[in-house]
Design a protein around this nucleic acid. Sequence first.
RNA 1: UGGGGUGUAGCCAAGUGGUAAGGCACGGGACUUUGACUCCCGCAUUCGUAGGUUCAAAUCCUGCCACCCCAG
Length: 356
Amino acid sequence: MERVIVGMSGGVDSAVSAYLLKQQGYDVVGVFMKNWDDKKDGQCTAAEDFDDVRSVCNAIGIPYYTVNFEKEYWERVFSYFLKEYQNGRTPNPDVLCNQEIKFSAFWDFAHKTGTRYIATGHYAKAENVNGKVLLKKAADQSKDQTYFLCMLKMEQLENVLFPLGDMQKSEVRKIAEEQGLAVARKKDSTGICFIGERKFKEFLKNYLPARPGEMRTLSGEYIGQHDGLMYYTLGQRRGLDIGGRGTGERWFVVKKDMDQNILYVEQGANHPALYSRALWMRAFNFISGAPGAKQFECGAKFRYRQPDQQVNVSVKEDGYLVEFAQKQRAVTPGQYCVLYDGDICLGGGVIEDVLF
RNA sequence: UGGGGUGUAGCCAAGUGGUAAGGCACGGGACUUUGACUCCCGCAUUCGUAGGUUCAAAUCCUGCCACCCCAG
């Protein structure tokens, strides 16, 4: 009987994943990763989540353990997260978390115990095709999580199982219900992976010093004060506290000037300054190997759950130029550009610059 | 201290006798394994203030206060 270690978060998806693998005849072991010390900021969701893992594993009839990657998470994910914010960018820690923790540290741990497979509750598929492993979109298109897996290599995917790849979320909940799993109706968790939902501004304030400054329009008109550039991201509306000015439309962040500590804002949800025509990446991770062509057309996402956008990719000496068929709203440095060929996720890279 | 104007929620702003529009901001929720966007709900028993007229006033009258502008 082949053994598989399932990363259990305490949610329905990983619970049903474990159940399905057990049904398929695997020797299933549940492992709960504790990667964040939440005692220091007053939250205690990890303890509750572990209670749910215990309950689910008992119901399914599999052993369960805990493994602690707090140190790795801090060093390989969180420190980068803070550094990016300090540089005025908007990082995506969850992509990095998959790259560094779930499919690296966690895999190493499993491998050391002599286990061949790890599994997670991600909505994605890993398929062997002609000696290559391809990462493909999940059957449930609205839940597809390949965006977050864009930095993996096929070597990492080789020993990974995604039991939910062909399932609809509604089926997953139904199975959990039928099996009497305690988490059947538990709300999906959101927020930074392993950290959870936080009031973001308050959270960041604990780690980075805020430097208030001016808010101006691109033409230089003074609009007001901001609390610190790190609290704002491109395309953001809330938290600006600007009311009663100009046309009465909403205001959005269109640019951050780190040198002068100025936050640029413009009015109107469709303001031209919000739309860009291309982006630049210094590096790109091709999951299953780089394509031969120096230039190609494909689909792309600039944020999770965005419908694929048509782009033209040019491979340059020192990076990748991605030009959009349609102008794109609020493409943001620090976030990931993920490329798709139909259902196949080609890979991703950090957005370095945005071209207008 | 002569003349003119304005004072409606945090901001902008409708409403000139019939019992407080709307927008922005803000708060809450939905959506969501990042950050955002979006959507939904909420948000002045009260109209600078004190009186008066009226069945009824933010709307009419009077006093006072504040701010603005032009004169000086």
